Amino acid sequence: MDRRKSLKSIVLGSVAGGLAIHGCRPSTEGTELVEAPKVTYPGRVPQELEHIAELRDEQFLNPHEQETLTILCDLILPPSEEYKGASDADVVGFIEFMAKDVETLQPDIRGGLMWLDHKSNTEHGTEFKKATERQQKGILDGIAYYDPKVPGNERPFEVNFFSLVRNLTMTGFYTSKIGMEEIGYKGNQPNVWDGVPDDVLEQHGVSYDEEWLAKCVDQSKRGVIAEWDENGNLIT
């Protein structure tokens, strides 16, 4: 199994152990924050839409953290000639949203990004995002693997941080449109089903009552795809 296929098998499990501190929101004075792309949420109830709007108005990661996290996510899931990468699916935007929705993730994410800069400054004299790719990968090699026999709360913080970001990267990418297209996931799509195939019915000497079928299946609406407006109301 190659690396890309093995990454696809990773699912979002338990999050990394939390720190015994509370993260502080970064100061945004004098900086321009990157606005998340506008997304519609079909099928959501008003309460969900209100909560999403509140989260979108908040900002967790500052520009430096966004840049560092972008580099980290692309090292975890890099693009290639055949596949898209983490940035193509705005994985950082997904992680930003998740951190605002699940605030217990914030200390781990912010603390981990600070750790990367400290490690890079100590070993290479520059912050993580400005280090060479080889230097960046060298740092990650030391935290990318852990002993599964060691409980999460007993592992080094930086190891849990990388595990958390790796899981969020995989989840953000493979639940995006381009990620689902990559693995060929079709989801719940309308199709045409005529019941048990005729050859099977013949094998058992039975058949459908055409009058009964006509009452149970509205043939005029077969294959119609449901649509919602921007407020989550069903159109068709």
Rank of each mutant, 00 (worst) to 15 (best):
F128Q: 03
F157S: 12
L168F: 02
D199K: 06
S207D: 15
G93A: 03
K186Q: 13
A144R: 06
A86V: 00
G111C: 06
P63K: 07
L19M: 11
A89N: 02
G85N: 03
A36I: 10
P78Y: 05
K186F: 01
Y146Q: 08
F97S: 13
S120P: 11
T28K: 14
T28S: 12
G85P: 01
S163C: 07
T169P: 06
A53L: 09
V159K: 09
P151G: 05
D101V: 09
I183G: 06
S163H: 12
R110A: 15
D218S: 00
S9P: 00
N62K: 02
P79I: 01
M1G: 13
A131W: 02
C73D: 04
E35F: 01
I21F: 09
D147Y: 07
C216G: 11
C24M: 15
E182L: 09
A131G: 10
Y208T: 06
S220H: 08
I178T: 08
G111D: 04
H204E: 09
D198E: 12
P151Y: 07
E50K: 15
G179E: 03
E181H: 07
L12Q: 13
P190V: 05
D101N: 14
Y145G: 10
E48P: 00
E35N: 04
V11L: 08
L33D: 13
V200E: 05
T68D: 05
G184V: 03
D101I: 05
R222K: 15
D108F: 02
F60W: 13
K177T: 13
Q106V: 00
E32A: 05
W115D: 07
E48D: 12
L77E: 02
W212A: 15
D101T: 13
R134I: 12
G43T: 06
P37D: 01
Y145T: 14
T104D: 10
T169I: 07
P190L: 05
T70L: 13
K5M: 13
W228L: 08
G43R: 04
T104L: 14
E230K: 15
T169W: 05
T169D: 06
E181F: 05
I143W: 04
D199H: 12
